[in-house]
């Protein structure tokens, strides 16, 4: 990799200052499981790598009651919480078992020991698992500057609503009545070839798909059908158009479109 300046600020404020002074292309380092391979391949050439690890309060899992008209519970996951910590959390397993299971399926054990929620969503890999949870679980992405609705967070291929220097500090996942995540893994990388998270909140159902398009997306036809009748059979006959879906050596768009249907049904069945 190219050489860079390494900084390890102890506070969000110090990190923000470093960004201002950090030269042409500063980059934040969380768990590094995507960034470091990219640096090794010389795909990125940052002037400064700002390691967030020493900033207190960015990891940990808690729950809180919703405010205002939305009285629902949310599970708050700190941005630097590792995938392994989410997967192993008693609280997450109790409140949103689908989220724990999703985290358990990211990468491999060693990646899960280092990789973080904040790093994953800020990177916005179209085949990452967490984006499906952010969308389907009505999440709110909290940064050092503001709070962003999950629905507005992912903007496209490796693109988010984050502004330069903005740091994700936590993600609030709304606790659903039921939810399940089904993933069909790309065989080599084990990223999601297609991943579908189905979540039910009272009368509302959300179906979020990752891996299949340039960025995570919802399937309104499925959501409407499931809102009417929350059963796998309700999805019969609903086709997802392969138009705009990804095609690569592992799966053409039509196969991905087909898998969305299969996995959505299986997710509904898994919801029980």
């Amino acid at each position: 990799m190219h050489d860079f300046k390494y900084a390890r600020p102890a506070s969000l404020a110090a990190a923000a200052t470093l960004v201002k002074k950090g030269g042409a292309d500063p980059v934040f380092l969380a768990g590094g499981q995507t960034l470091i391979p990219a640096l090794k391949m010389r795909l990125r050439k940052p002037s400064t790598v700002i390691d967030l690890a020493a900033i207190k309060g960015l990891d940990g899992i808690a729950e809180k009651k919703g405010k205002g008209k939305d009285k629902g519970l949310t599970v708050v996951v700190g941005a630097l919480t590792t995938h392994a910590a989410v997967a192993g959390s008693k609280l997450v397993k109790a409140r949103i078992p689908a989220l724990a299971a999703l985290a358990e399926g990211i990468g491999d054990p060693q990646v899960r020991h280092r990789g973080t929620l904040g790093g994953s969503i800020a990177n916005a890999d179209p085949a990452a698992d967490y984006p499906a949870a952010v969308i389907a679980l009505h999440a709110e992405v909290v940064t050092n500057k503001r709070s962003i609705s999950g629905d507005a967070f992912f903007k496209g291929f490796f693109e988010t609503a984050l502004k330069p220097g903005e740091i994700v500090t936590a993600v609030n996942f709304r606790v659903p009545d039921k939810a399940a995540y089904m993933k069909f893994a790309q065989p080599a990388s084990r990223f999601a070839l297609v991943g579908v998270l189905v979540a039910k909140f009272g009368a509302e159902v959300r179906v979020a798909v990752t891996g299949a398009g340039a960025s995570v997306f919802r399937v309104p036809d499925m959501e409407k059908a499931l809102a009417k009748s929350f059963s796998a059979a309700a999805l019969d006959g609903i086709k997802v158009s392969p138009k705009d879906l990804n095609s690569d050596i592992h799966a053409a768009a039509d196969y991905r479109a087909h898998l969305i249907g299969v996995l959505a049904k299986r997710a509904v069945e898994a919801c029980g």
Partner: peptide, 17 residues
């Protein structure tokens, strides 16, 4: 690292301080 398995090729030496 601190008792958990990690990939030492995907961690900077400075991160292990």
């Amino acid at each position: 690292v601190n008792g958990r398995s990690v990939k030492s090729c995907t961690m900077l030496a400075v991160q292990a301080a």
